[in-house]
Design a protein around this nucleic acid. Sequence first.
RNA 1: CGGGGUGUGGCCUAGUUGGUAAGGCGCGUGCUUUGGGAGCACGAGAUCGUGGGUUCAAGUCCCGCCACCCCGACCA
Length: 485
Amino acid sequence: MPSEGFVTSIARQSEDFPGWYNDVVLKAELADYSPVRGCMIIRPYGYAMWESMQAELDGHIKRTGHSNVYFPLFVPKSLLEKEAEHVEGFNPQVAWVTHAGGKALDEWLAIRPTSEAIIADSVKDWIQSYRDLPLLMNLWNNVVRWELRTRLFLRTTEFLWQEAHTFHATEKEAADEVATGLECYRLVSEDWLAIPVIKGRKTDAEKFPGADWTWCIEAMMRDKKALQAGTSHMLGQNFAKAAGIEFLDRDNVRKNPYGTSWGFSTRMVGATIMAHGDDSGLVLPPNVAPVQVVVVPIFRKEEERAAVAAAIDRLKESLAETPDGRAVRVHVDWREDSPGFKYNHWELRGVPFRLEIGPRDVAAGQAMVVKRVDRSKEAVPLDRLAAELPARLRDYQAELFKRASDFREANTHRVDTYQELRDGLDGEGGFFLAPWCGDGKCEKQVSAETGATIRCIPFDSPDETGKCIVCGVSSERRALFARAY
RNA sequence: CGGGGUGUGGCCUAGUUGGUAAGGCGCGUGCUUUGGGAGCACGAGAUCGUGGGUUCAAGUCCCGCCACCCCGACCA
């Protein structure tokens, strides 16, 4: 691969993946460090990506019957402590407000690490009858978890997310809701972000503290490590019992409702970067790309500039009324920098298509169309661009999804012995499907010895008797092992 | 919390036996430029992380503190 002239200001992905990731986030101006340790400032280009996936997910959430609500940032200590497993799981990560108004508070306030506790307490008066159920709510907010080791987007002390909280009369209905939430996440990941995901169930060691069980979607990044892209939890009656939520059912018996919660965060911006990016920087799926097409004008003399500008103006007008009615997000880069500078600038930012329009193109009535993902170059008549670009963007979106799917496929391996797993992890890496007996001790041994964890027990793996790679006891399914973020 | 390291314009770095801070990138203005990171000229921008100490004199030497980075531990 020739590297002359192409983006060189960032670390090479193949040589230093963490360094590459950091360079991309900072130099593509997605985010910046903040004065507060572990927190991040999300800049316009990065926030536009978040808004895009946020809008898409919000649509799915509303289509499935949920309403947006808001609950406070502060959670009284006594409420957070009501559910025993929950408080134990979160305590080390909670930031506390101990003083306000110039004096010590009688009761400390937790800055929400998540809202199960305060919601359970608040809704207990709203739920009196089975007729009040299901209660389907969603919050878009920020949460704080005091992390020791942070990385921009992937794990920050404060992050933005959505947390859905629902209450149901029956366990079955709540279990269906867990699936509904997870499906919303799959749709956004695969159809919007072009990131293929594996649905599965978390092991007890990895589940949410306070949940009966947790489902998740897991994705593979380009360094072959796994990233948890969303989780959906069956809370059972745990929080309802802790908060004393009861309703009178059809049979005139007082019962505790079943709860669920599910969350999707700004971490997905990081996932999008790491699932598609390359040595030149970001590679964005058109759906989330703040700029889908960038136009780089090329000219020497003033009359050339005028001719190029006229052609670009006509093109912009035609793009405003594309066949599918959806406007293409076009940016024309009229800055005074050289064309080469602009190519690098927009490649680093992952813009799917670049149109080069110079005197030769204007004379030929065409534009050079360059595809970011493979740098392929093609002359396209100017009067056909408006008709073709939407389709090209759709194809590009599909191509990225296929590329990511093929990559995951090629790096997912079935192994039947512990030694094969270790060799695989130390060698090429990737996802490993291996028989596991279900015992937490075997799981823990693998993570202690290899650094890999069980990401999930995939739903689509068929029942298959085998022998646990650690203890040899018979197993019914394969678990997905991988090193993870 | 243990081990190691680093703090000098927005960024990267130089700074000798202590003598009052230098270069590159970037930024501003002007002119020339523009098909893969353009050139020249002029210019703006630093209480050298912080507090103390030694000294006629500290970016430099000594002590304390703080922040950040790496490794380990920890991490719904």
